[in-house]
Design a protein around this nucleic acid. Structure first.
Lengths: 328, 328
DNA sequence: CATAAAAATAACAACGTTGTTATTAATGCG
DNA sequence: CGCATTAATAACAACGTTGTTATTTTTATG
């Protein structure tokens, strides 16, 4: 049998309501009794009954995360970081990898207080949802009337290009998914082009287009690139996986990084440090991204006013060992 | 405000206990009243309060799935299939990607009725756990006293080799992760060796060892292999990702599949059909794996007797287009 | 030291269900 | 038609909490 506040009450010889207050650290109970109760509770292995609490408080203190496409390592890292960020709050998180509607039904059943939704092209958020939620994705369509957390892709590319320019680079290529409807990928590419223009540079003549977002795609794109006459002096990799492939391809062809070609990757995750060569990268650090996301939901849950905040987060450039001075 | 059985009661003019019975399809309430109540409930958008139900029934009808390493697509597919399998039961599932102990704490808090644990080398199940659970993984250590669901790797390799032998192959290579402590990977390789022996064949001279489990690993392992003098006539790929890389490498080197080399992959997931060439594969089909896993937890939850069943599931070979007659 | 005020604790009603027991209505039968 | 069954419904006590109100104990004060 599980132990309840009543059990604690009879052991300590106080009423169960006092136990309840003590456990919630209420100022209404004397310090010494409080201490004793806490001690006994711990000793007995008391674990509060969430259901009972929920029943009276009408709050679950749980938020649901909808993540329909478990695939990219970057998102996995983000999820892990979000989990982490919740540790500092009194909320917990549960995860659903179901398609959006199914997931939402589950969460409604669990009566979560709010949701985080990873939006993608397959599952767009419909604006009718009554439950507090924030979405992480591209803030594209103008008037989302729910909070959106978004990484600022243009700013990322600006910073990346700027960094390379400072090192003397002029021939900067972007390697990523181009032919796609995936808004996020497009924004990165557009950001790159815009950044190049602002620095009065021509985008690298031959577009380095990957076929997908996998390691392999970066690998083969760059292998083809190296067969060309003209090589860039720097490459911006569109994602963690892609850049991994790029680096591999470069190494294999005995192109020295960063001596021959500098490489800078989109996505700012700790794993970047563990690559064959620790990778210089640009992007919103996952931990701040995570922090921002949970703060945002919690705020939304606790302050129900309906302003639609689209929050574009500023990227950070982390210098590691894949960028060097341009050699021409 | 959410609608409760009391609301339904006052609308239909019956007592709330009758409403409760009607909603649970009890034989104690007359058909006509039942119908009316159900109708009104639907109309009012009634959604049962899980917390209240849980409080009195002492059951959540929720099982938690612990999945500490979100990485392999195969596991993701398995998770999806498990979610699916739960649809046919009255249980739901929640997912945690936390390390095992953290995840377990969360689940204890939510008071799930049982757990499914994806065991790996980092997070071994400790046998002290009181909550009903099953683990999916390698049944290695003899006396697990909890249910273990395991794919029969030896049987898989037997079937794969047998299939190839029937097609006349003698030079069969296995491409997979060899130098590892990962029990699962080792079992596959050992299964392969055993199967070869039983068919009185020599394992392929040059071991095709991948450095990891990624697409790229299969790719580069096979590229090196093709530089060798002697080529196998068939390759068994150790996992979905690896096989994907193998196929890519083969294609790139203009080795025709299956004319020049036959390929058969471990892992039996639907995605195998969508590869560059639809892939013949071996393994327990994910859906039956999923089915088996959920049946197993539910059984464990509902019948608390403690027998330690290790269930090795029989693999199925799915013929597609990557295997053909041997050419020597 | 009596008593008012403040502090500490206890009692109790919720919360939305389920399951058991009590009550009322319908039905069958001599 | 009266009464015993049986069918249908109603009433009510749980479940483990929280929050509000009532009671008791302690402390301060003239």
């Amino acid at each position: 049998m599980t132990v309840t506040i009543k059990d604690i009450a009879s052991v300590t010889g106080v009423s169960y309501s006092t136990v309840s207050k003590a456990l919630n650290d209420s100022p209404l109970v004397k310090e010494v009794t409080k201490r004793k109760i806490l001690e006994v509770a711990k000793e007995m292995g008391y674990e509060p009954n969430l259901a009972a609490k929920q029943l009276v408080r009408k709050k679950t203190e749980v938020v649901g995360l909808i993540w329909p496409t478990i695939e990219r390592i970057v998102l996995a890292t983000l999820v892990t970081n979000i989990t982490q960020a919740f540790k500092d709050t009194r909320y917990s998180m549960i995860l659903s990898i179901d398609p959006m509607d199914t997931a939402m039904e589950t969460f409604r059943k669990f009566q979560v207080d709010g949701m985080i939704i990873f939006e993608d092209d397959h599952s767009k958020v419909n604006e009718e949802i009554t439950m507090p939620f924030v979405s992480y994705g591209v803030s594209g369509k103008k008037h989302a009337n729910h909070p959106v957390i978004d990484a600022n892709h243009e700013a990322s590319m600006m910073k990346a290009v700027e960094h390379l320019v400072k090192l003397g680079h002029k021939h900067i290529a972007y390697a990523g998914l181009l032919q796609t409807k995936d808004q996020l990928q497009l924004e990165k590419y557009q950001g790159y082009k815009k950044a190049m223009k602002e620095h009065s540079l021509e985008p690298f003549i031959k577009e380095v287009e990957t076929e997908g977002l996998d390691w392999f795609d970066g690998y083969s794109a760059v292998k083809t690139l190296l067969e060309e006459q003209e090589r860039p002096t720097a490459i911006i990799g569109g994602s963690y996986d892609i850049s991994g492939g790029i680096l591999r391809a470069l190494q294999e062809q005995n192109v020295e990084v960063p001596k021959d070609i500098s490489l800078i990757s989109y996505d700012n995750i700790p794993q970047m440090a563990n690559m064959e060569i620790p990778m210089t990268c640009i992007g919103v650090p996952v931990d701040v991204l995570a922090q921002e996301i949970v703060e945002s939901v919690l705020h939304r849950i606790e302050a129900p006013e309906k302003e639609a905040t689209v929050k574009k987060l500023a990227p950070t450039l982390v210098e590691r060992e894949t960028c060097g001075k341009a050699n021409r």
